[in-house]
Design a protein around this nucleic acid. Structure first.
Lengths: 213, 213
DNA sequence: TGATAATTTGACCGGTTGGTAAACATTACA
DNA sequence: TGTAATGTTTACCAACCGGTCAAATTATCA
């Protein structure tokens, strides 16, 4: 009997585990580079080193693959913001949030581009995640920042736009990597631009959020 | 006799002018929303209100349409940076650059997304523009900023990363509009988020670039 | 007005794409 | 070891997509 995807919800064999892993890795590679519509199942199958029907045995549709990938990646992606700690020193917290986000842009650019592609095209597949878990988390952290500002620990500023500013400046180095490289010139070897960016951004935000009269 | 695209290089009729205008407007709408690969000629034709073969009468290929669109939009898109004035007051120049970029994000989000889509997917069609005219313009303005820093008029900072930071924070409001709306909650009517962003960003950059010991 | 050039359209083509059907191969397990 | 469930492949399909072609329509202007 053929009972393919139903079984997965009950028990996952070793093969299922391995193959789904390989597929999602390949899907990340392809979707992040070309967006959902721009990617083809054949491309993903080739990267994963398996045939298209075999791929479709594990994920019934292209959409199912995409959704599984999003679900798996979103949590990790929001980890840095979750670590944001209300009890810590505000300046230190913001500084280390920037550093973590930059590290993720350097080490996981595909994950960043996956979401960038999605959001840029109107977030047709992750609208619920944005309005639900994401908004909730941001609301929570914005309240922390607002409290800091009220207590006079940092400059009085709009916490939402502060978060947007940190997101955009850091993710820029993943999402717009080609542009960054083109402008800086490719003679720069390695990841030097990330260290320069860290220096610049930490200073910008720390000095920019200092309390002053 | 059929002498379609050759004639255009010599003399453009009123009809040609109008139709090409309509096509490029539709192409901007579609390409900016779905990226190059994700867009179809049929979609553009429908938005433009004309048949696909008619569209292909004016632009031989999808690529030709995309290129014509990029060429037309890129210049305008870089105008704010060009206005950056070496003789002006540094703080005022940076402030007004931010304001102009935010106004463009608000008034021309499609243009912003057109480039974002392109760069995000590796800039396959605009690599030359990035490494040529764009890099040249940025190099020039970076020199201006560096001179300001050397003269002690603003804090000593990496001018390239300053420009990246202004780009990313402002364009964020066009490229990631869906996310911004989702996080802020849609109860906000109109363009209030742009004014809030302007207030926040002007303060962040002005205070963050202040000379201090 | 009439002829000539410019424009528009419907029908069509070959290649691609998401997805299916069924035969075949392999694994797990009694 | 045998057999039933799981996994894989080949061949295929219908819809879509970029683009062509020739015929029909409309604009231009002597």
């Amino acid at each position: 009997m053929v009972l393919p995807r139903a079984a997965k919800t009950q028990r996952r064999t070793r093969i299922q585990e391995e193959k789904e892993e390989r597929i999602l890795e390949a899907a990340l590679e392809v979707f992040s580079a070309s967006g959902f519509r721009g990617s083809t199942i054949d491309q993903i199958a080739e990267v994963a080193g398996m045939s298209k029907p075999n791929l479709l045995y594990y994920f019934r549709t292209k959409e199912a693959m995409h959704r599984a990938l999003i679900d798996r990646v979103l949590d990790t992606w929001l980890d840095p913001l979750r670590e944001f700690n209300a009890e810590g020193n505000p300046v230190a917290e913001i500084r280390s949030y920037i550093r973590r986000k930059l590290e993720m842009a350097r080490d996981f650019p595909r994950e960043s581009r996956l979401f960038a592609n999605e959001v840029l095209q109107g977030a047709p597949h992750i609208e619920d995640e944005l309005k639900g878990p994401l908004k909730q988390l941001v609301d929570e952290k914005a309240e922390v920042i607002r409290a800091w500002a009220k207590a006079g620990k940092i400059a009085n500023c709009d916490p939402y736009h502060l978060i947007f500013a940190i997101w955009s400046t850091t993710q820029h180095y993943a999402d717009f990597d080609v542009q960054v490289r083109a402008v800086l010139g490719q003679e720069q070897a390695g990841d030097g631009r990330f260290e320069d960016a860290a220096r610049f951004l930490e200073r910008l935000f720390v000095d920019g959020l200092q309390v002053r009269e």
